[in-house]
Simulated assay, not measured.
Amino acid sequence: MDAVPHPNRCPSHPGTLLDDIIPATGKTKAEIARLLGISRQHFYDIIGGRKPVSPAVAARLGKAFGDGAAVWLRMQAAYDAWHAEREVDVSKIPTIRAA
Results as ranks from 00 to 15, higher is better:
Pro52Asn: 14
Pro52Lys: 04
Val53Met: 09
Val53Asn: 06
Val53Tyr: 09
Val53Glu: 07
Val53Gly: 10
Ser54Leu: 11
Ser54Asn: 12
Ser54Gly: 13
Ser54Val: 07
Pro55Ile: 05
Pro55Thr: 07
Ala56Asn: 12
Ala56Cys: 03
Ala56Met: 10
Val57Ile: 15
Val57Glu: 08
Val57Thr: 15
Val57Asp: 08
Ala58Gln: 06
Ala58His: 03
Ala58Asn: 03
Ala58Arg: 02
Ala58Gly: 08
Ala59Ile: 08
Ala59Phe: 03
Ala59Glu: 15
Ala59Thr: 09
Ala59Cys: 06
Arg60Ala: 15
Arg60Tyr: 06
Arg60Pro: 06
Arg60Asp: 10
Arg60Asn: 10
Arg60Trp: 07
Leu61Lys: 03
Leu61Ala: 05
Leu61Asn: 02
Leu61Ser: 03
Leu61Thr: 04
Leu61Trp: 05
Leu61Gly: 04
Gly62Lys: 01
Gly62His: 05
Gly62Arg: 00
Gly62Phe: 02
Gly62Ala: 05
Lys63Phe: 01
Lys63Pro: 05
Lys63Gln: 13
Ala64Thr: 11
Ala64Met: 14
Ala64Tyr: 15
Ala64Pro: 04
Ala64Cys: 13
Ala64Trp: 12
Ala64Val: 09
Phe65Ile: 03
Phe65Met: 07
Gly66Lys: 02
Gly66Met: 06
Gly66Leu: 01
Gly66Asn: 07
Gly66Glu: 06
Gly66Val: 05
Gly66Pro: 12
Gly66Ile: 01
Gly66Trp: 04
Gly66Asp: 13
Gly66Ser: 07
Asp67His: 06
Asp67Ser: 11
Asp67Asn: 15
Asp67Leu: 02
Asp67Ala: 05
Gly68Pro: 10
Gly68Ser: 11
Gly68Leu: 08
Gly68Cys: 09
Ala69Asn: 04
Ala69Phe: 01
Ala69Gln: 08
Ala70Glu: 14
Ala70Asp: 15
Ala70Gly: 10
Ala70Gln: 11
Ala70Asn: 10
Val71Tyr: 11
Val71Asp: 05
Val71His: 14
Leu73Lys: 03
Leu73His: 00
Leu73Trp: 02
Leu73Arg: 08
Arg74Leu: 05
Arg74Thr: 07
Met75Arg: 13
Met75Pro: 09
Met75Phe: 01
Met75Tyr: 03
Met75Trp: 03
Met75Ile: 00
Gln76Cys: 09
Gln76Met: 07
Ala77Trp: 04
Ala77Val: 09
Ala77Gly: 11
Ala77His: 12
Ala77Pro: 06
Ala78Thr: 00
Ala78Arg: 12
Ala78Gln: 13
Ala78Met: 04
Ala78Ser: 14
Ala78Leu: 05
Tyr79Met: 00
Tyr79Lys: 00
Tyr79Cys: 00
Tyr79Ile: 00
Asp80Gln: 14
Asp80Trp: 02
Ala81Cys: 06
Ala81Arg: 12
Ala81Gly: 00
Ala81Trp: 02
Trp82Asn: 09
Trp82Lys: 09
His83Asn: 13
His83Glu: 11
His83Thr: 04
His83Pro: 01
His83Val: 02
